[in-house]
């Protein structure tokens, strides 16, 4: 829910366990307490998408029977699975373009432990019309970081369990061109197009590919996106917001004519869901013109990357806590 600074302070002073998303100028004014936060001025609320620097989006973790807050860097980020509760959920926030976020993006899919410990969260961002930078906050110490990750580990009651899900409006045509990569990377030059080596840059140019559409890989029926960050004519490099992995087959997504309609179509099956957290991607917000448009039952920060066990792009991520 979107609240005023005063209301957020009251929740903290009551000792509530909170996940918060807001502009840095507001987060700096919060008292110490049981909270973590990340920076973004973009939100999708119950009333629709907004850009807002005078309110904070707060998730109250009423389901927590116990909690702890930990700070990580690139060298120990995968300790999150050691620190998490055996029956719990971990909320993770990492600053955009930080070393820890890049390392997590590349290595998380290789971690079996993450799948045993539901980890959900987001890559924090900033107002794209300014030269601000992304930050994360550890409310227990009051410290903020641009180069570290902060996690809120929640212990759930014995009769409850956490589950994560995604909503991806992008689709692929199985008959479409196969794109494969020879290494795990965030920056691509050459790749295999239907088995033939060529520059991805040339393929995009020659086929007039809309780079607002992500590359999509099929993970056993779940589509996982990789978004294009930039293409460089100078050195024929294509930079990505999440890594591509060798051994996976990618295809460019089929076009999406209306993001809000596509979300509405997919969200029908979730109407009775009561998520404790959700977030959606800044690229969906911008390309899909989601300002003023709601995605019920999901509301939350608009992010520079989404985390559901691993880093995702152009995806709505959610967490639920259900009875066992």
């Amino acid at each position: 829910m979107l609240v005023t600074l005063e209301d957020a302070k009251k929740l903290i002073e009551k000792g509530k366990v909170l996940h918060i998303a807001a502009d840095e100028s507001l987060l700096e004014q919060l008292p110490k307490g049981n909270w973590i936060a990340g920076t973004t001025p973009y939100f999708i609320t119950e009333q629709g998408g907004i850009t807002c620097k005078d309110k904070l989006f707060v998730n109250e973790m009423d389901c927590a029977v116990e909690h702890k807050i930990s700070v990580y860097d690139k060298d120990n980020i995968f300790d999150i699975t050691k620190d998490s509760y055996s029956n719990g959920i971990t909320f993770l926030v990492m600053p955009f373009a930080s070393d820890v976020a890049v390392y997590f993006a590349k290595e998380a899919p290789n971690s079996g432990d993450l799948l045993m410990n539901p980890t959900v969260g987001w890559i924090t961002g900033f107002d794209l019309s300014t030269d601000a930078s992304a930050k994360v906050f550890d409310g227990s110490s009051g410290k903020s970081y641009g180069d570290k990750a902060v996690a809120l580990h929640i212990c759930l009651p014995d009769d409850k369990i956490a589950n994560l899900g995604i909503v991806n409006i992008f689709n692929i045509d199985e008959g479409d061109t196969k794109i494969e990569f020879t290494e795990d990377t965030l920056s691509v030059k050459k790749c295999l197009i239907n088995g033939k080596e060529m520059f991805l840059y040339d393929y995009i140019l020659e086929n007039k590919i809309n780079t607002q559409l992500p590359l999509v890989a099929d993970y056993n029926g779940t589509y996982i996106n990789v978004s294009i960050k930039s293409v460089s004519e100078e050195d024929k490099t294509v930079d990505l917001y999440a890594p591509v992995f060798s051994g996976k087959v990618y295809r460019f997504s089929s076009p999406v004519s209306d993001y809000a309609v596509s979300f509405a179509e997919q969200l029908k099956e979730f109407k009775d869901l009561k998520p404790i957290f959700s977030c959606n991607c800044i690229l969906n917000y911008l390309y899909g013109e989601l300002e003023g448009k709601a995605t019920p039952p999901f509301a939350g920060p608009v992010t520079f990357g989404e985390i559901a066990y691993q880093l995702l792009n152009q995806t709505l991520v959610y967490a639920v806590v259900t009875d066992k």
Partner: peptide, 17 residues
């Protein structure tokens, strides 16, 4: 086998690889 469960689909993919 394809599940509706995100974690299970990611696990199957990882273990197969």
């Amino acid at each position: 086998y394809q599940s509706d469960n995100l974690g299970l689909n990611l696990l199957i993919t990882r273990l197969r690889s």
